[in-house]
């Protein structure tokens, strides 16, 4: 299996633990990730100002992957949505792909619309497969229980993802967690948005939104929240101290990226999964896993 890895803006600057763990997990599973240096921002922040400019940025990135004959995997859910939304837009609005290609000529690019865009988690779930992951698990994480955070753009809009997972009752990330041996908890507010998109517009609203989720995850007694989007992690981890201060609460809740969790079950060392880069240390969680599990009798 071979994909172009689309990093976007946030992962390679603020989510190095995500990138490191995803790359090492992919290597362990025999999935080849190709870097295309010329990739830029996906276009997501620009769409609010001018949708066509955003779609052209997306198309330019997609055209570069298509030129190399590669489908794309992404780590950021907003990148996933923007690139896939562009694909959907070109299919459903006749003429838009031709207009786009006229503008891509100056970059020596053409986009035929063939690139399949998938989130890294979806690729693991759908293409690599839960059964195949199961075969590679060497250290089941049976001592811990975690809360899956799907975020918004991983499942929605469902029309662009061919109804891959049900946003009202999603299951794919729970299955990806359970295959590691960890328990995936059911908790209130599971479907809620992190609020990251409005952090710069009205900070207090965004903090309230993240707080609602953190409260519910603590209530469920999770050892960690499992994230698959760098901006959700910026909210839950990067702003956790800020929320604790603002609302006079204490969480100290570790926020792990899914590949960090999977990596542990695959026997990869925490240092190679970027655990040192987590702002809220997962010390207690790692200690729970330090003792060898009881042999099955």
């Amino acid at each position: 299996m071979k994909f172009a890895l689309f990093l976007g803006c946030t992962v390679p600057t603020r989510g190095l633990n995500y990138e490191l763990s995803a790359r090492n997990v992919a290597e362990k599973l025999g999935i080849e990730l190709v870097d295309i240096l010329e990739f830029t921002c996906c276009g997501f922040p620009i769409r609010s100002l001018n949708q066509d400019a955003g779609f052209l940025m997306a198309a330019r990135n997609l055209a570069m992957a298509e030129k190399q004959g590669l489908n794309v995997v992404t780590l950021c859910s907003a990148c996933t949505e923007t690139l896939q939304e562009a694909n959907y837009h070109f299919i459903h609005n006749p003429g838009t792909l031709d207009d786009t290609n006229q503008k891509l000529v100056k970059y020596n690019l053409e986009y035929k619309g063939t690139v399949i865009v998938k989130h890294f988690a979806r690729m693991l779930h759908e293409d690599y497969g839960i059964d195949n992951i199961k075969e590679k698990v060497v250290r089941p994480l049976e001592e811990i229980q975690v809360a899956a955070h799907y975020g918004c753009h991983y499942t929605k809009p469902t029309k662009i993802y061919d109804n891959y997972d049900d946003p009202e009752n999603p299951h794919s990330l729970d299955e990806l967690i359970e295959v590691t041996g960890a328990k995936s908890l059911f908790y209130r507010e599971k479907d809620k948005c992190c609020g990251g998109a409005i952090l710069g517009i009205r900070e207090i609203d965004a903090l309230h939104m993240s707080k609602a989720k953190l409260d519910a995850v603590i209530e469920a007694k999770a050892d960690a929240l499992i994230s698959i989007c760098p901006f959700c992690s910026v909210m839950y981890e990067g702003n956790q101290k800020r929320i604790e201060k603002e609302f006079e609460v204490t969480y100290k809740l570790p926020i792990l990226y899914y590949p960090q969790l999977l990596g542990l079950a695959l026997g990869i060392e925490p240092i190679d999964l970027g655990f040192k880069l987590n702002r809220i240390k997962a010390k207690a969680l790692l200690e729970k896993l330090e003792s060898e599990p009881e042999p099955v009798t």
Binding site: K156, C193, G195, G196, I198, I201
Partner: peptide, 8 residues
């Protein structure tokens, strides 16, 4: 500008 884009 306050829509978080969650699509719910």
């Amino acid at each position: 500008w306050l829509c978080s884009g969650c699509v719910s």
